[in-house]
């Protein structure tokens, strides 16, 4: 029981990560791949934020009379990672727009047949 209380959060987060990862590698549509990539990354962010939590703590902004704060460092890292994520998404989506214009499709199996991509 203790094991479950200690780790349930991480287990669900792992499940979410793997769902996102599965969407990335199994989706045939490129937009869906990008959605999967975002779900994958957002779930990794949850892993970081979960480890920063202190039971009974509050947000790391100084308030009179509070002594227990959650850990600010994971928050900082994830702020950066979110920005990196949106940057990748923007570039990925513009590639998709160009691919659609060049090939007329965004379904992976269709353009692999059209151009014998290596």
């Amino acid at each position: 029981m203790n094991l479950i209380l200690d780790y349930y959060n991480y287990w669900i987060v792992v499940f979410l990560m793997m769902t996102g990862f599965y969407i990335v590698i199994s989706a045939n549509n490129l937009v869906k791949k990008i959605v999967g990539l975002n779900i994958f990354q957002t779930s990794v962010f949850m892993l970081y934020i979960s480890m920063g939590k202190v039971t009974g703590g509050t947000a790391p902004i100084v308030v009179e009379g509070v002594t227990q704060y959650s850990n600010p460092l994971p928050h900082v890292l994830i702020l950066t990672a979110i920005v990196v994520g949106v940057a990748t998404t923007a570039v990925g989506l513009s590639l998709i727009v160009r691919i659609k214009r060049a090939y007329g499709t965004v379904e992976e199996n269709e353009f692999e047949n059209k151009d014998d991509a290596i």
Partner: peptide, 14 residues
């Protein structure tokens, strides 16, 4: 080059 870059982007991000 577009599909190559996209594949690179997906694998690189993973």
């Amino acid at each position: 080059c577009l599909t190559a870059a996209f594949r690179y982007l997906v694998m690189g991000t993973i």
